[in-house]
Design a protein around this nucleic acid. Sequence first.
DNA 1: CGGAAAGTGTGATTTTTATCATATATGATT
DNA 2: AATCATATATGATAAAAATCACACTTTCCG
Lengths: 241, 241
Amino acid sequence: MNTGTNPVYYTNPRNTAAFKTENLQKLTDIMHEQKLQPGAYLFWEGDTADKLYFIKNGRVRATKSTDEGKDLVLYLYQQGDLIGMIDPYDDTKHWYSAEVLEETLIGVAHKKDVEMLIWQSGEFALEFMRWMGLSHRMTQTKYRDMMLYGKPGALCSTIIRLSNTYGRPEEDGTIRITKKLTHSELSDMIGSTRESVNRMFSDLRKAQAIEMDNGYIIIRDLNYLKGICHCENCPIEVCRM
Amino acid sequence: MNTGTNPVYYTNPRNTAAFKTENLQKLTDIMHEQKLQPGAYLFWEGDTADKLYFIKNGRVRATKSTDEGKDLVLYLYQQGDLIGMIDPYDDTKHWYSAEVLEETLIGVAHKKDVEMLIWQSGEFALEFMRWMGLSHRMTQTKYRDMMLYGKPGALCSTIIRLSNTYGRPEEDGTIRITKKLTHSELSDMIGSTRESVNRMFSDLRKAQAIEMDNGYIIIRDLNYLKGICHCENCPIEVCRM
DNA sequence: CGGAAAGTGTGATTTTTATCATATATGATT
DNA sequence: AATCATATATGATAAAAATCACACTTTCCG
């Protein structure tokens, strides 16, 4: 599945690990390719949700925006991720938007064609279902993490999820998050403010749990972070952004 | 699907509306029945998640508990609901518990048998998938509602969801929630405290948005509640507890 | 290089929400 | 009717988090 064309950052297993190569192939076979530039949108809030997207390369961010200008970042997708949903309605609308963050090569399938595949192949259906199950569990555990231990818990959970998505283990035992994130971006992931994130970061630095290396987060004490959000060590395909 | 054996309260459409009767039948055919009393548990946090449950009659509450004694109510299930998850692991553990609230008649299937059904029948697979899609969207929109508009938003969203699950329209245009809920129970649904819920209730009463009729919530001004949580009028199968 | 834009850091203040305390109400049971 | 358990209501206080204000740093780009 990992085509080896990702020289930029360390890539961890994606949730399409649920698929055997042959079944993922069936899916990409019914897709047409599209190359998108940063700032482009896969879809906007309000668009009809009749497509399924597969990221061959690049990064996409799913965001819900409010009228008051507040943003809530729901998911960060990257190489190997599948975006979209099958439901019983023909005219379901997206309730969030998906923005391309880097030059992204994407496969696009029509929901109807995916449904056809599911209908035809039991094995494909089963694997697709397992992927859906994983996706749902990811949303559920994030809900839990955001609700149970305040903003510090939400932040630590998010750092751990980021480390599962972009983390590269270093020789000295620390973990480097190989994506730059501003305090604003982080605050949009946990429904907080950049100032609060800043203060929580100072606290974590003081506790020697993290350090910053010109813009990159380095995790020095993963267990400290895990303690704050009462981490339950979910599988890596579930504990992600 | 509604067997008409529910004399106690008004029943709204469940998310298994995604299934045709014949496919729901296929599912119940591979299930064995079990009658459970209030206080019993379908499963506990930590149990192996290898079963799928279908509620023929009764009520079940899914709850995540913390070591500090805090509870987070995740879902309220009732007649017609399906509980469980298909994922790629054989030994997945539940991360929350499911407690029976009333005498409940339940169908239990083994995950393996459900997977067999999915494998064999394209139509079943497709409908099962649609149900999974709806379930996920329900979790997602709840996540959104809990994150975006503070505790008052979370509470109003919850009242609206309750009205979609237990609401009975009255002749005077109000909606009666035909299940008694204490302030404590409501606070566990929104990650708040009973005192805060009580104060928010006073505010809503003052605004003539709700009133109480010996323990039951009556919605007088649904639009007021919708305003607080910026309701987007999701389908009723999605906007539920 | 220089200046604008974006990002960080931190005090002071306000708002939101939780906690603590206590009074009253309601309902079930004997 | 008296008692006990549970639930509601509300004031006072504390803690958590957001907002406002402003200084400083880094990055970007003509």
